[in-house]
């Protein structure tokens, strides 16, 4: 490894030494920062600004000079609804279907995720045998790629798959899981909880283990009942971690795309289409490529995410300080 990087580093050494002579050691900091800042500017900040330009222009050309200014038309189109709760009354009904799908998806996913990660973390925090093994078992799906997760479950759920065969064996009928809108949606929530709960379990477990033991010992002295100990000690002391988990899960939940797209492709119909998939399909997969509309939609999503991230940063700061 060292043999590999040494020549590279030595090549850079020479210009950096020259720079140091010109700038002095203090301002050399900018030379160290430069590559990172250039990448951030080009691929994060510049796109944010351009996103607004795209959202205010129309046509299916990607080059900005070919695009015509349309003002707030893209937003107006997206937001043109008789009633926001009824996608059918909207000009762009798919977008609102995706929005409401995402809302139900996030609510269900985050609820189940928090409940099951908390339950798992509580159990793993007890004195049990082979804790490391069990922890690894719950954690390993986190490492699987979204496409692999989708295919693993598709193979289980396919028409003549293991689940249907088992159901039939037990005397139930078979179900065409991914062709029924309700089941497809339910399974999408399930696989995303399955894939990610290990991550949150780990964070909650770390939070539980950070609770000082003497608090429990003091409670035992006072002969406090277990339920009371849980409500009065464990839960309040775990709260900061819980909130971080909640916000993190919300941020990731809103951005869900990969596993559901690979799992159902958004179908049947648009039953499992989430808002990021709408952006992808509007901007890149359909014809004409409606870049303006896609940008406008992504700005709406970004607003939600910025709000959530601000909450997250505020919470981490507060936790770190107190």
């Amino acid at each position: 490894m060292l043999k590999l990087i040494t020549p590279v580093m030595q090549v850079v050494e020479w210009p950096m030494r020259a720079l140091q002579r010109v700038l002095g050691p203090r301002r050399l900091a900018w030379a160290f920062l430069a590559p990172n800042l250039v990448l951030f500017s080009l691929f994060a900040f510049l796109p944010v600004i351009l996103n607004f330009v795209y959202s205010a222009t129309g046509s299916d050309h990607i080059l900005l000079r070919d695009r015509s200014y349309v003002g707030a038309q893209n937003f107006a189109q997206l937001l043109n609804c008789q009633s926001y709760t009824d996608p059918n009354s909207c000009r762009i009904d798919v977008f609102w279907r995706a929005v409401w799908n995402t809302v139900s998806f996030v609510v269900l996913q985050v609820t189940f995720m928090v409940v099951f990660s908390l339950l798992t973390a509580l159990i793993l925090n007890r004195k049990i045998r082979a804790r490391g093994f069990f922890r690894a078992v719950f954690f390993f799906p986190v490492l699987l790629s979204p496409v692999v997760v989708a295919l693993v479950w598709k193979w289980m759920l396919q028409d003549q798959g293991l689940l249907n065969a088992t159901l039939q064996n037990l005397g139930f009928g078979t179900v065409n899981w991914l062709l029924s809108p309700g089941w497809a949606f339910g399974w999408s929530v399930f696989i995303s909880v399955w894939a990610h709960m290990g991550f949150y379990t780990l964070i909650l477990l770390a939070g539980l283990q950070a609770i000082p033991r003497d608090v429990y010992e003091a409670a035992a002295m006072d002969a406090a009942g277990p339920w009371r100990v849980f409500r009065r000690i464990t839960l309040p002391l775990l709260m900061p971690t819980m909130v971080v988990v909640l916000v993190l899960a919300l941020i990731k939940g809103v951005q869900t795309f990969d596993e559901v797209y690979a799992f159902t492709g958004g179908g049947p119909g648009s039953a499992t289409m989430l808002v990021i998939q709408y952006i992808y399909q509007t901007g890149f997969a359909g014809t004409p490529r409606l870049f303006g509309l896609a940008s406008a939609a992504s700005i709406l999503v970004a607003l939600v995410l910025v709000g959530l991230t601000a909450v997250q940063l505020w919470l981490t700061r507060r936790n770190a300080n107190g």
Binding site: A44, L46, P47, F284, A294
Partner: peptide, 13 residues
Amino acid sequence: IPQTVVLVPLFLV
């Protein structure tokens, strides 16, 4: 700024 919300301009850049 997650990549998911700047897909279109990122594509241009």
